[in-house]
Simulated assay, not measured.
Amino acid sequence: MPPHQAPLPSPPAPLPGVTGPKLAPFTPTAHADIEFIEFLGRENDKDSLVWKVEINGAGSFALKMFYFRHRDFLSDNQAMDLLRPLADPQLYVDYFDPFNCECRAYGRLKEENCEDLAIKAHGYLLLTPQQEADLAQKSERYSTLPCSLGDTDTLDGENFWGRFEQHYGLPVRAIVKDLASSAAYPTPTQAQGMWADLQVLHSLGIFVKDTHGGNYLTGKLVDFSRSWTMHHPAMDQIRFSTIQCLMLKELQQLLDHYYELANLGCIDPAAIPQDLEGFCSGDIDQYKNFPFAYNWLKWSTNADVDKAYVEQSMFVFDEAAP
C-alpha cells in the first residue's frame, strides 16, 4: 500500500484537524449533487479550479476545487523560511496546503463574525469519483490528462488533480462560496474598503500574503490559499525581518492594485490610501498590526493542551524513525 496523507475524518468533521480555526462541511456527509455550469477561474491558477455550480438543485454558488500538493513541495516552497523542520511531515499539509489555509482563514472569519471581510464561504465538499471525471471532461485545458483516485495508476503528479502516491484514494476537496458579481472592477466605494478590510484581517491573525488584483472581486478577497492564520508555526518560527519583508510584499500588491484602478479611471488617484503608500515607501517599520499578535488562545477550551500541541509540533521529526 502506498504512503498516505492523513485520511479525512469519517463522518466528516471541520477541517483541518489541527489546533485552531476550521471550516465545517457544507452538508452532513460532505457530498452533494453538483451541476457544473461555467468555468470562473483563471487559466494559470496553480492551486485550484473554480466553477459556477448548482448544488442539490437549488441555488448557484462558486465552487473552488483544490489540486493536491506533495508534502515535499509544501515544505520546500511554502515553508522554506522556517528556522527548523516541523515535528511531523503531515503538519506541512495541515498548515501550508492551500485547501487547509483557506479553511483556517474562513474558520477564523466565522469565529469572529467577520465574514463580510471576504466573499463568504459556506463549507467544504468532497467530490465523488464520477464528479471528478465529469469535470475533467468539461475542462479543455486538461482534458488529455488522466483523472484517477489511484485505484490502478501510478500516481506521480502527472494527472488532472496532481495526485501523488501519498494522495492515494483521497477525494478532491472543495469550498462552497457565494457567487460574486461578474463586474470586472470594484466601485469607488468598494475599492475604498480594501485597505481597511486588510488591516482588520491582520488584526484577526490572518496574514493573507497574496493580495494582487486577481484575488479581489467587488473589492472583497476571494482567495486565502496562501494565507497563514494564527496560530501558525510560520509566524512563530520565521525571523521578524523576514515577516516584515513578506508583509511589505503583501501591502505592495494591494497598492499596485490601487494604482491599476486609478490608471483605469475606476477610482480617483486621491483615494489611494496615503498610509498604505507610506508603509510601502520605507515605513514598514511603523506598521504595528502584525497578525502574530492575535490572541488565538481566547478560543481555546483548554489552553494548556493547545499550547502543548503547538510546542510539540515544533520538535524536529526524525526522518530515520520507523
Rank of each mutant, 00 (worst) to 15 (best):
A24I: 08
V172C: 08
T154F: 15
L125P: 09
P129S: 04
H31S: 13
S203K: 00
N100P: 05
F317S: 07
G57N: 02
L170S: 14
V305N: 11
T187M: 12
L201F: 07
G41E: 06
D97R: 00
E165A: 12
D97H: 11
F96I: 03
K307N: 14
T229M: 01
E54W: 05
A6F: 09
K46W: 12
Q130F: 11
L117T: 01
L63G: 06
H257W: 14
R104C: 07
F66D: 07
V93S: 10
V200H: 08
K46N: 14
L170E: 13
A30D: 04
S313C: 12
A184G: 04
N289P: 03
I272H: 04
P89L: 10
Q90K: 05
G282V: 09
K46Q: 14
E165P: 07
A293G: 11
M230N: 00
F240G: 11
P25D: 00
G20W: 02
A62N: 04
A133W: 12
P12Y: 01
K209N: 10
W195T: 06
L15V: 04
G219K: 03
L261K: 00
Y168V: 02
W299R: 01
K298S: 11
D45V: 03
C114V: 03
L221A: 00
L149T: 09
P291A: 03
V53N: 01
A183M: 09
M65Y: 03
W299S: 10
V200G: 05
K307M: 15
L109A: 02
I206W: 01
F99H: 05
C101E: 04
E38V: 05
V222N: 10
V53I: 01
A79V: 00
A6R: 08
L246T: 02
E319G: 02
G123F: 05
V316M: 11
K177N: 13
R104D: 08
N77E: 13
F164T: 04
P25R: 00
P85N: 07
A133L: 14
R163F: 10
E112W: 03
P322S: 06
W161Q: 03
P85M: 07
D256N: 13
W195Y: 14
C114K: 06
E54K: 14
D33S: 13
T27I: 09
Q199W: 00
